[in-house]
Design a protein around this nucleic acid. Sequence first.
DNA 1: ACCTGAACACCGTTCAAGT
DNA 2: ACCTGAACACCGTTCAAGT
Lengths: 193, 193
Amino acid sequence: MSPTPARTSHAAIVAAARSILEEEGLEAVTMAGVADSVGVRPPSLYKHVRDRGALIAAVADGAVGELGRVIEAAVLPVPGEGAGEGADARVFRAAEAFRALAGRSPRSVSLVFAGLGGDLQPSVEAASTAARPLLELAAELAGADRALVAARALTAFCYGFCAMEQAGAFRFGGDVDEAFHTGISALIRGLAA
Amino acid sequence: MSPTPARTSHAAIVAAARSILEEEGLEAVTMAGVADSVGVRPPSLYKHVRDRGALIAAVADGAVGELGRVIEAAVLPVPGEGAGEGADARVFRAAEAFRALAGRSPRSVSLVFAGLGGDLQPSVEAASTAARPLLELAAELAGADRALVAARALTAFCYGFCAMEQAGAFRFGGDVDEAFHTGISALIRGLAA
DNA sequence: ACCTGAACACCGTTCAAGT
DNA sequence: ACCTGAACACCGTTCAAGT
């Protein structure tokens, strides 16, 4: 029926863009490069995405979704722990999961929080579903009235630390793992007070 | 003597690049735009800077220097405070100074810590002289053996928070000032323990 | 010694033309 | 309905030619 069946798809294009982003950096996600990677010519991409900005925002949406799922899984109380774990231990695990994802997909994570210099962010819907598990846990840790404030502080620390780590900003030697663990523990302790 | 006197300079070029960075973003700092702004043609820039990457690294060097001076000033104990201030109050002021600079020059600050997606960072020398005042103060706060770890945690929180704030990542309402103050206070309290 | 125009390979994006 | 080549305005960078 259709005169020309689609030779690619929105999903394939976004996936190609994300893998180029991680492997070569944001300035390498080029309409020509993405087109090449999905096997069409650059102008064809415009049948599936509005422009380069919208494509990058779609990548950010995917990344924030993955971050939300990773944190949601990390936050579950581990079974067989007797009376159940404290919120502090579960926040610690969430922070470790954040950092592990940042280690695997550093540029996607930067894209989510800092837009990497552009102004394309994930959609508010994607961001708010991703944030829910941490917000609930933050309420347990710091009280319902301070949940938003506590979640923001935790996220800021994790993002800032991981962004600096991945950018190679810790250049004076020393134990970077220890700095992360000391920092997140101090923050948790201070927020629980 | 010289057949053609210089019509611009390294300093003027870096200053123009920085102001374009802050006003229009990193992708707008273009060799053509910078050349136009200092009154020469693009090829002339290559007599003063190696290439666009080196120019942006020079902007990062200037920004990290300014950050160091701003923190150094904020960290001085205020005179006439009786027995002298605690390290906690002075760290709090340093964090506020960081955030104030990030409010004035958000893209320069991101450039310093995250390279804004590229891999051009400030030089190690510029970074280490800028870091010195905070490292000394961190030693007072957390003990000499934990100074580096504490300084890294404080910097990560400040940078992460400010980067998110400037990127517009706090989109669920609430009081952003309160989140910053609560977070930095919690971190200071936890690190002092 | 510095500046310039011309040139090169590359961008993102549009559009008329193909199937 | 989707894909394509050609075209446009723009990048960064090089280089021979001017003064």
